[in-house]
Nucleic acid binder design. Structure first.
Lengths: 212, 212, 212, 212
DNA sequence: TATGAATGAGATTTCATTCAT
DNA sequence: AATGAATGAAATCTCATTCAT
């Protein structure tokens, strides 16, 4: 378990509504991105607008709660793969899980792909995820399965890149991302003797949002 | 010249204003994405808001005009490269130009990366660009420089993917996309005997926007 | 005892909650005025919001209950002073107590200073208080300590006026009202031969609130 | 002329609307205080809500504009009275004008009576007004017309205090404030040999609003 | 033709009050 | 009887678009 799960409400109707709300918000954010209005999420959950704000003090908090859940889930998958036998396969599976997370969620793309993020908690969760990616990459690198100059940050960045490569095909070919994941894996594999022309990144620069 | 130039206004001050407007909009959309307000673009162009709507019937039309220009410019670059001696180098140069177009323009990423596009003209321009990409890829494929199952559509999709891979690094390392372009080129190169696990796309499915 | 004490609840925990609630509301209204939310008062009392509405049918009723208590307390002080030896000192002490009540309670200022008041009970309590003020003033007047044309209503009005005079100094000089009380006492004293240019008020015109 | 008049719009319809808006806002704020909604002001002016925000970037700016106008008007009156022959009469007239300003405007009472104020411009205008009050008081003091320990700040504070004294009589006796102004003038007059029991204030402590 | 003023739908958020548990 | 979850009206503010000047 990587993240922390806040307590949440205890009364049964509140628990049920919170669940409905999170589900509705997750679904709506996933399909239409961060721009969906709170009103729509409320309607989709079958509750009043006020109920959303009872459970989450602002739209940003609701969004952050959902993003946190997804980031921690992914970090947990990566952590589990750290003990897999085949580091190459582990990295592939981690990346597959990561790309799929992006592919299935527009809001995730919009929030996580952005270098400036309001929420410290979300930045922290991304950092945790980056650490896991770094470890998985390190193990694959040591076995010569990926080029020596590929970093965990490269891997993290590629998740988003692969999703965006396949994005226009999403409705006609929802699995197309697998093709570009494979292409990327070929790309980071050590087979060619050439070195990459640009130095590798060593961390994701995550800074608080500036007010525009 | 690949695209068509619509008639436009004839009075000289109108011509000048249209030019000012397109420049200002291009600059503003590039820096801040499609979210910039018409008011800001007008101010940036030094004209009134009404003038924007005299030249372009809606914000979407203005945006489309800018996108059309960029798409055609890129298609022209690709067309010129069709007569280059080295097909591999030509493809690389086309991709570099393409990724750079994305990297330098937030609105371009937001509009062109979408699978559903309102404007027939923009869809047509993308189709033309895809044709050019297809020819460039075909030439490289025939020389064995890229895998046999890589299509021009793959190449087009990768442009956006590479930009998005590097996007979070943009402010700290504006040239990082070159690294991921190289990685992608390695990926589409025929060096490994393996075949990709998912069939190649043969066109971009561009459909009109649904009302959200 | 001047006012009437409504029956209230009989179960012991309900009695205790009513007490907690009145205390918390008194404290909170005093510090922050009538704008404080019911939620905050409930939290401050350590009870649920529903409990507030079980004891008081609306926010206005709760507020009125508190105001009633304070008005009656002040009337009791005045009544006690009716039997004091020195009518001038008695009046001064009554006014000091009155101004201090205003000074220490933002909600009291906001409610009692209004010419239009929703609650008949509050209007009645103000009337009772005015009667006491009238008697105290009458005694002082008879002794020549205050001008002949100063009425109890004048005295009542001055309480609020003195508090408001000192209000902007409250945080930097919490006792400043004593200065302006003294000034007012000098003003209502008979020393100058001049008569006031405007006829004295003989009652406070308290009318029910209009719907805004 | 004490304050500065910002340029404002030049087109005739905009000028007219701005005038309508300022008038409507002044009237509405005066009658019902700062709580009136922008929607109501807009309706009262016969314009759309958006028009309010075109002219004033926020509700606070609109309010400030009106307050500034009133404060400067009052300061101008005071400045003119500095050259009057009779310092005592000048002070009386200044105070009468000041109290009347308060009496006629609920918002003015709510804004100016508060020690913490958001707008630097409004604080500055109050400071300017205090300076004028100080000079007028100084002149009266030198002639022995007011007690030696009465300051301009006292005078400023009394304006609000006198208004609040008369406030409950406003509907039944709109001129009642004149009675309490006279009482206050008697109070600050040097006739009694006694000194006030609390030191005089030497400035109004105006601090920026804290977020509550 | 150019301008920028006016519009009003829609977004987020607060809070008194009602009601299921 | 007590709780606090749910509600929805209302407030401020933004912005694409229309229209008077």
């Amino acid at each position: 378990m990587t993240g922390t799960t806040p307590a949440g409400p205890s009364r049964s109707d509140a628990v049920r509504n919170r669940r409905l709300l999170l589900d509705a918000a997750a679904r709506t954010f996933a399909e239409r991105g961060v721009e969906v209005s709170i009103g729509e999420i409320a309607q989709c959950a079958g509750v009043g607008k006020g109920t959303v704000f009872r459970h989450f003090s602002s739209k940003g908090e609701l969004l952050a709660a959902i993003m946190l859940g997804m980031l921690d889930e992914l970090a947990d998958i990566g952590t589990a793969l750290l003990t897999a036998d085949d580091p190459g396969l582990a990295l592939r599976e981690f990346m597959a899980a990561g790309v799929e997370t992006f592919v299935k969620d527009r809001a995730f793309c919009e929030v996580v792909g952005r270098p400036s993020l309001q929420h410290q908690q979300v930045r922290d969760a991304i950092d945790r995820l980056c650490d896991v990616a770094e470890e998985l990459t390190e193990r694959a690198r040591r076995q010569g399965i990926v080029r020596p100059d590929i970093t965990g940050t490269d891997v993290m960045l590629l998740l988003s890149g692969i999703q965006h490569t396949a994005a226009p095909l999403l409705t006609t070919d929802p699995q197309a991302w697998r093709r570009y994941l494979e292409l990327a894996l070929d790309g980071i594999t050590a087979s060619t003797g050439r070195t990459l022309p640009h130095p590798p990144p060593h961390h994701l620069p995550l800074t608080p949002d500036q007010e525009p």
